[in-house]
Design a protein around this nucleic acid. Sequence first.
DNA 1: CGATTTTGACCAGCGC
DNA 2: GCGCTGGTCAAAATCG
Length: 546
Amino acid sequence: MSSKRKRAAIDLSLEAERKKEEEDHSAGDCSSKDGRVDKKEEQFKEQEEDPIEETAGEKVVEVVVDQGGDGTEEEIKYRTQQGEEMDKQSEEDAGDGDDESDGAETRAEDKHVVEATAGDGDDSQTIMVQDEVSAMQEEMEKMKEENLMLRRVVDRTMRDYYELQMKLAAYQQQPADEPKEPEVFLSLGATAATGGGFPEPKRKGQAARRPSVGSDEMDDGKGEDLGLSLSLGASSSYEEEKVEPAAAQHDMDVVGADGEAKGYALLESSKLLASAAGVTSQSVNPANRKTRVSVRVRCQGPTMNDGCQWRKYGQKVAKGNPCPRAYYRCTVAPGCPVRKQVQRCLEDMSILVTTYEGTHNHPLPVGATAMASTTSAAATFMLLSSTNSSSSISEAGGGSGTAPHYLSPYLLNSHHSSASPLLSTPSSMPASVVRGGAASGMQHLNLFGHSSMASHLKYPWSASPSHGSSSDQMAGSKRPFWSTGGDEKAATMADNVGAVMADPSKFSVAIAAAINSFMGKDGQVMAGNKDGEGTSSKSSNKWGGG
DNA sequence: CGATTTTGACCAGCGC
DNA sequence: GCGCTGGTCAAAATCG
């Protein structure tokens, strides 16, 4: 226990540090976090401003350059005595038009300025102004370039920072923790190495079809395939994704079917290996369905650590899998409706399939936010994808009601990747998998087909002890949640997700949706969720009251 | 001693 | 209606 708490403390401090760093650097993709980048740029600008100001002189000169003409008029405004204006300008430059309303206001103001300036009627002054304008334009050009460079630098810095952080965490944890699992990966489970993604019976036949990209199959050599897969489905009775092999099967099937077309997003590396993690998210209709997110992880311990505290309330042997299925409830908050099922995969006992259900109605522990983010992103993405894509699936609403609310900062970075998404349409899904019958639509997204990907995941939920209270946590579990253990490339989950999103715009939409859902719930997320909560359980949460 | 886990029993949904 | 199965309850056992 004490050790766990220590770990938690470390996680916290590191997390805080990370966040701080993040804010300071406000790096990442400009398009995804304009505001932050702007901050950084502001600082930079301030330094640059001085010289300019001197050049411009002391007088209060307002210059407005209207380069409009094609609708996207670009105005440059410089006020020698008001740095604010400069900031605004820089914001526009860097903002990529993210804040159009503000921009409009600014322009409106500028217009007035123009009029005022013109009204002077002083020719000499006008000439001076023109000269200054041209000079400033040049200045602005330079600044723009510098901005770009700076942005890149910041971005790189952030990446390096994450990498270092992960390495550090890995080093700190490695020695003590994992007697059983030598390499860390403890964190991310690897789905069956053999299978390439998830161990499933059907896989054999399908294997061949697996996207070459992922080289999943190649991984076999090493034994691990890291695949993170997401699948969203609608089902009135969430039977479909029962953690059992069937589910895996289904995943595989889906992937296999469309795998080629989609291709797995490859994340660099191969350094890490081993673990493959699969996330299957099933978002269901807001009405009476809940979100189910399934995570497959290679894990030696009884459960994988997701940062939350769970209490086991039941165990049962499900048909088709001799391995008992354990039922857990979130105990972080008394009335938290979130439950999870944990079961080992029949084909590969080392793989743990954890299925989360519901949404937390309380702030998540630091270590849990990552998972939440991941699942949220997964669900959101899937929902959006389903909506945007031609897919007939229209589950969109589900995301809002069920997605976890904590959006990890990592998510905001996801623009970098360039891999193509792996979406499989419902048609590819074997009906057998969806026992509930309501298989109206199931989307399967395979975020990672390659082992390397797993290594890049920043959410090694499997790494830490899954249950705060659990006594026999796997050794590896003591690592900070973000530590994948040895990962060098600091690709974030977001990156991973981003990789899936070939279309940046789509991703933005996803992020927006995620944020919306997050904001809407505002901590009390459960509201929407509760309805779906008691679906299958007869007793309505006796849990809370005992 | 309180919290958690274990485990047999109960209940509900579904298919036949 | 019956049987099967999944999910949950709750008393007892266990743990720290």
